[in-house]
Amino acid sequence: MASHAPAAPNNTRYFVPDPSAWPFMLTAGLALLIVGVWSYLEDKSLGSIPLYVGGLFSAFIIFRWFRGVALESERGAYGKQVDMTYRMAMAWFIFSEVMFFAAFFGALYYARTMSVPWIGGEGAKGVANIQWPGFEASWPTNGPAALGGAFQNMSAWGLPFINTCLLLTSGITITMAHHAIKLGKRTACIAWMWATVALGVVFLYCQVIEYIHAYQELNLTLGSGVYGSTFFMLTGFHGMHVTLGTLMLFVITCRLMKGHFKPESHFGFEGVAWYWHFVDVVWVGLFIFVYIL
């Protein structure tokens, strides 16, 4: 690594870590996981062992990796420049996540404004309707073949609205936590963080309830045509991101309790905060485009 003498926070030399086996092991873990999923989806020959082993192993390595990074950071190996690296990297990573969601929002937009009207006999390519006599464009829809059978769509003003409030509040609480750490009020910060974690967990709980409701009472499933597809794809991937975010919040809170982070340098904290806000914004998008409109 580039910093010869144990590095000082304001070291000029850029921190280059020692050779590390984590990346390779992580990849191996992921590969095993994938083989597991593959065997689950296609030829069942391998059973579920690779899936679990691969998953757990990957999780373990990720934990080790991040722990290592945390320790390096606490040791003061990272100077200003490294801090900036992490900020930029995180920002660009979040941008890539935005584009990932963009694909699904794009699908929703296309289905609503093009494909469904067309097979419904409207717009420039309305002739398609002669393939589907009697089908009229509407939203939500499960298509001319009414895939998955009749269903009701999820109303915005029940659980989804509550969830919106939960996430928006969590946005506030994490900001409070941030202010607290900046002022060096560690206990306050920790309290706000627990609040945020709690809100995240409750959100996920509501999401689960909502899904059960959808499947059992509304007969709204992944199979409910393009509405069901976009609905569950968008909310589902968002849900995964919330889960991840909550996990990260939890880790950060534990680190705070272990005395990590300083009022002037705590990017680990801020990075997670950014991520959380991103998840927050995506939800607002979902609430408007998937639930309300």
């Binding site: 584009m99 694909a103 794009g106 699908a107 494909s115 469904v116 298509g143 073949a145 794809m233």
Partner: peptide
């Protein structure tokens, strides 16, 4: 790249989790 990831993910769910992003009978295309 994330957009490509999204696209192939929809292929995956269309094949194994009966979504219908790309099937007209379900309103997809």
């Amino acid at each position: 790249m994330p957009v490509l990831a999204g696209a192939v993910t929809m292929l995956l769910t269309d094949k194994y989790f009966d979504t219908s992003f790309f099937t007209a009978s379900g309103g997809g295309d």
